[in-house]
Design a protein around this nucleic acid. Sequence first.
DNA 1: ACCTGCTGCACCATCGATTGTGCATATCAT
DNA 2: ATGATATGCACAATCGATGGTGCAGCAGGT
Lengths: 329, 329
Amino acid sequence: MTGRKSTIYDIAEKSKTSASTVAAVLNGTWEKRRVSARTAKLVQKTATELSYRTNLQASGLRTSKSGMVGMVLPLHDNRYFSSLAQHFENESRIRNLCPVVVSTLRDPEVEMNTVQTLIAHNIDHLFIAGATAPDQVGQLCSSAGVAHINVDLPGTQCRSVISDNYWGASQLSHYLVGRVAKPNRDACFIGGIASDFNTSERVRAFKDIVTKDDKDIHTCGYDAEQSEIAIRARVELKGRLPEILFVNSTIAFEGVFRFLKTQPDVDVNKSAIGCYDSDPFLSHLHFPVAMVRQDAEKMIKRAYELMDAKEHTKPGIDFIQPILEFGAP
Amino acid sequence: MTGRKSTIYDIAEKSKTSASTVAAVLNGTWEKRRVSARTAKLVQKTATELSYRTNLQASGLRTSKSGMVGMVLPLHDNRYFSSLAQHFENESRIRNLCPVVVSTLRDPEVEMNTVQTLIAHNIDHLFIAGATAPDQVGQLCSSAGVAHINVDLPGTQCRSVISDNYWGASQLSHYLVGRVAKPNRDACFIGGIASDFNTSERVRAFKDIVTKDDKDIHTCGYDAEQSEIAIRARVELKGRLPEILFVNSTIAFEGVFRFLKTQPDVDVNKSAIGCYDSDPFLSHLHFPVAMVRQDAEKMIKRAYELMDAKEHTKPGIDFIQPILEFGAP
DNA sequence: ACCTGCTGCACCATCGATTGTGCATATCAT
DNA sequence: ATGATATGCACAATCGATGGTGCAGCAGGT
């Protein structure tokens, strides 16, 4: 049952050949190494008989490869990141690579250690998604000669593929504005962290298109409670619901929604509400919500194209348009 | 920048010691190997100077370990599985292991290949979550001597930690029944796949507690469209909404919800509705939904306890109670 | 002076696959 | 028959870390 794992030496012995011949047959270089087809067949057969499996650590040690490709993420249990992970898996499988996904809990130290470990295992390349310190991580990869690409957050040292937050937020803003004919309408932005790159891009668009007033921007974090508090305070202050409401994530939306449920439906229906993030149940509420969904699939495909074309070394940013889940603005 | 990675030999040379001494210092066995503290300090210093990183492939080759622990999942982009992944990460980090998560797309072949690859990299142990063929995968691990535990789906060969679907579905059923005083009430179960272990357990509970009639069980798959069709057909047939509605997943619920929106609110509010799965937005609909959430955290903690205690070899099933997101039945 | 027992370390085989090189035997041309 | 080229394979070094073993040097006891 738990019989010792067999090696190329076992196969060599059983098939009366040498280890180098066996290795050549099993890794496909046998024609190059002029092993006869007859011998190759024999070796193959013996290998299956002994249920041989290449020891990838030994192989990797010799070749400085591993056949594994990695992706680091902040979190697994998040729609967007898990979607990135899923598409990373799909694309990796197409390329016959073994994808491993690791989350680092938004902790820069965990991030660095994890990447060190992956590098120490000689991963063939790394996708760095949502790292808190993309450039540090990138530095680590560079100095180890590991190909890498930033996803979702831009780095300055290497190629990055990120969601076009400015564009998405502009589209959403235009749409919301279009739904409110009035001049002098009241508008606000809820959720996210001002210093966060993605949030700041969305805020920039919102300011360019909807309102320049900083008092209308409530970047109170990603958390539902804070968002609920923020919208409530705002409405109490103004004495009415904003006519345009831009919510920065589904989590924040949860809080906002808890508040909106306390308001009369007729009032809520007068507001144009948008959410930068998507959730299937949001399209089923008793009022419409315009949503923007980040195109994880396209981002990963793009990143892989760059990797395949070995263009990952050229710094630069590729923007991927998110998907608008509402009528054109 | 991309200077060759340094090895213990480089450190040995620079610090005028030997490779074995360096190795001992760097892997913490130096006291056992009677290296003086002075030498140890020196080696440490040189190691940082050369920004040394252990080559884990070489180390693993020698020791038949890797420091990596794995989890295979059907999908990343799913609330339940990504939650399992997240807790797996957390628990692994606590134990100072490097967790890697891989999805296998519910494809038995991908499943086997992936596990083979992980084994070939000498992962220290494997959590098998939601595998289509847990026993085959387990067999593979056994024959390679890799510790493994099934999560979410039971295997016959090794220890399994699964959600107590029968209990959860019983509780939910009792609750729903309690909300409908009438005798002879109409009830149905929507969603899931009859042959699926988890679904069948839930159906078993539903049958024991609510209705024995097979015609009331619509295991029409996990897909939203099919569920929508199923509930619509059912209601058309019976001429009214069921008084008890047990939906087997949030995805299925999406379809059911699309249909419910076409019905008068008063009617919908007369039904007792439950969903075996949880989503934050489901608690915000215009009618109440009782939810059951699988306790991913407890499952993973349990699985890790078994692993730590080396009890993973004893076959047997540990049932973990899911969390009831409704008042006690 | 001599044996014992410890300290502190270095030597070297080993894990399993890869790959440059070398060396027989076979094939062919002249 | 002979040198030239091709064919088919085996040998052995190598990747980097590990750990069993051995061996100086020194303290302490008699």
